[in-house]
Design a protein around this nucleic acid. Structure first.
Lengths: 231, 231
DNA sequence: AACAAAACTAAAACGTGTTTTAGTTAGATC
DNA sequence: GATCTAACTAAAACACGTTTTAGTTTTGTT
C-alpha cells in the first residue's frame, strides 16, 4: 500500500471518527455534511469523494459497532429460543447507551435507496439470524421443513421494522423490545416442534400482557390536534 | 358553510387532484411542490397553507383510495384465514395498476415524522386487521388467549414493512406478496387453534417453496460495484 | 359603502444533500 | 529533477422542502 492509499485511508478514518463524534454529541438534525466537513477540517466535497453520500458515511460509522454487537451476543450463553430474545435485549442496551447516535444511523440506513448500502447492513445481520435458526433446527427446536433462510429473513424483517419505528420515535425503547420479542416469539412458535412450542407460547403470552394498546402506541399522541377533515 | 370555506375546499380539491395526477403520471422524483403548484396554477405557498407539508398533501391524496380498498376487500367472500391473504392480494393488485403512484405515497408516509399523519394511515388499517382477528377468534380459528390488538399490530407491522420494501424497490411485487403472506401465515399459525393450524402450516410451507433466497432478494443486486472496503 | 379579517400570491430566503468547476497539492513515474 | 496524475480544496451552483415577507384579492360584518 503506497503512501497515497495510506493518506486516503487516514482521511477516511478522520471523517468517520468526526462523524461518529458528531452523531453522538449533537442532535440528529444537526448532523449535516457541511458541519461534518467543517469540524473535520475538510472540504465538503471530500466526504463525497471518499464515500459517495451522507448515508455511506454513516454506514461506515456504524460498521464499527457490528463487531461489538457480535461480541456482546456471543458472550451470552445461548440456550433454546432465548438467543433470539437476547438479540433484542443486546440491541436495546446499545440503543439505550447512545440513543441519538443509533437513531441517526437507523434513519440514514432506511433513507437510502442504495441497494449496496442497505444490504451491506442487512446481509451480515441476516447471516447471523440464519445461523441461529439453523442451530435451532439442529437442536430439534424448530421443525426441519422450515427453510432457515426464509424464516431468518422474516424474523429480521420484523425486528428491523421495530427498530425503525423506534428511530422514528413511534415507539419507545421498552415497547420496541416487547413488540420485537412478541413478533419473534410468534414467528418461532409457529414452526417450533411440539416439545418446545408450549413453553415458548407461554413466554409470548407473558410478553403480550405487557404490551400497551396499539392506539396508545405513543402516549403523547395528541388526538385532537389539527385533525382537519381531509376527504 | 360560507363561501370562504367552499373556496378553501375547492382549492384543496384542486391541489389534491393535481397531486394525484402528477403522482400517477410523472416519475416519483418528479413530484416536487414547485411543479405541483405550477401545474395546479397556484402559489407554492398555498399547499403549505392548506395542508402543512408535502406529506400531508400526499396523505390527503391517498385517503381517497382507502375507501376503494375497503370496498374491494369486503366484496370478497371471507372464509377462514384466507381473508388475511386476500388483504395482501388486493393491495398488490392496486399497486400493480399504479406502481409509481403507490410508491410515491408509501415513501411519503414513511418519510414523515408527523405522528398525526402516520397514525391517520395506520389506525384505520389497524382497525380493519383487528376486526379480522377478532372474528377469527370468534370462529374458533385463533386461540382466545390472544389479544386481537397485539396480534393485529404485529401482522400489520409485517405487512407494512414489506410494502415499504417494495416502495423502496428492495423486493418486487410478487415477492412482496409471498413474503407478506409467509409472515402473516406464520404469525397466525402460531396462535391458531389445533383444528385450523395444520392446514395453515401447509399453506405457509407452500409459500415458502416459492420464496427466493434472501441473498438474491433483488436479482439485479450487483455485488462487485464500488464495494470499497470500509472498516 | 366602509372596514376587518382571512385567503392567496409572488418572490425571496434558508438550510438541506449533492454536484460541478477550476485550481492546487502531493505522491508516483520516468 | 521534471512531469504526470490522483487527491484534495474552495466556492459556486442546483434542486429540493419549507418559511417568511409584503402586497393583493376576496369574503363577512357593521
Amino acid at each position: 500500500m503506497g503512501k497515497r492509499e495510506i493518506n486516503r485511508d487516514e482521511k477516511r478514518q478522520l471523517i468517520v471518527t468526526t462523524a461518529r463524534h458528531l452523531m453522538q454529541v449533537r442532535d440528529v438534525s444537526d448532523f449535516s455534511m457541511r458541519t461534518l466537513a467543517e469540524v473535520a477540517g475538510v472540504s465538503s466535497a471530500t466526504p463525497y469523494a471518499l464515500f459517495g453520500s451522507k448515508q455511506a458515511v454513516i454506514a461506515a460509522v456504524m460498521d464499527i459497532d457490528f463487531a461489538d454487537f457480535m461480541a456482546a451476543l456471543t458472550a451470552e450463553p445461548n440456550q433454546g429460543f432465548d438467543v433470539f430474545f437476547s438479540l433484542v435485549d443486546i440491541t436495546a442496551e446499545l440503543f439505550e447507551k447512545n440513543p441519538s447516535y443509533y437513531r441517526t444511523g437507523a434513519q440514514a440506513i432506511q433513507a437510502t435507496s442504495d441497494q449496496t448500502l442497505s444490504s451491506h447492513f442487512s446481509l451480515p445481520r441476516h447471516g447471523l439470524l440464519k445461523d441461529l435458526v439453523s442451530e435451532a433446527i439442529e437442536r430439534g427446536e424448530i421443525c426441519d421443513q422450515i427453510n432457515p433462510d426464509s424464516l431468518a429473513l422474516n424474523l429480521g424483517h420484523q425486528f428491523y421494522g421495530w427498530i425503525q419505528a423506534w428511530a422514528k420515535d413511534t415507539v419507545n425503547l421498552p415497547d420496541m423490545v416487547a413488540r420485537s420479542k412478541y413478533g419473534l416469539g410468534l414467528g418461532l412458535a409457529a414452526v417450533a416442534t411440539p416439545a418446545s412450542r408450549a413453553q415458548l407460547l407461554e413466554q409470548v403470552l407473558a410478553i403480550q400482557a405487557t404490551l400497551p394498546e396499539a392506539g396508545a402506541l405513543k402516549s403523547r399522541l395528541t388526538p385532537n390536534r389539527k385533525q382537519e377533515a381531509v376527504s
